[in-house]
Amino acid sequence: MSSSIVLSNNNSNSNSMSMIGQSPPCCSDVPNTPASEEMTRMVKNVVASWEWVPLGKDKVGIIIPADQDHRQVHKSRFVDLLEFCDETMKVKEVIAVFGRADLTVAAGFPRTLRYVGFRVVAPENFPPTLDATTHFAMTYVV
């Protein structure tokens, strides 16, 4: 896609635009509790480079590299992570968070996630702490 083909933003995308300047999520936002430490272990057990961050009361974000190779993701460990989020972290949604830079959404890991049941989060529905201009998010109800 050519970046030159972009119209001026004169429509209703005000919610996402208002997030410009907010900090992206990072693992420093993770609380220091035994459950959080176990959550970190579970996340790293799926893929070592993954991180996570709480996104409000009943959501957690799993921060995934844009170039994640689906072949490196162990399915049973991923399911273990979802179960842990449900049973121990007591969250309702797990949100896969990608950086927009270098991400291809119609292929690669986002497409795999879509295939297994994750749904794309519209920019206007992003959790307040997530910057829609720099991140792409997909949600799964556990």
């Binding site: 083909i5 119209l7 995308n13 996402s16 792409f136």
Partner: peptide
Amino acid sequence: AILGSALDSFDF
């Protein structure tokens, strides 16, 4: 070309 209403780089 047809752009979507989100006007971001994925919305084509």
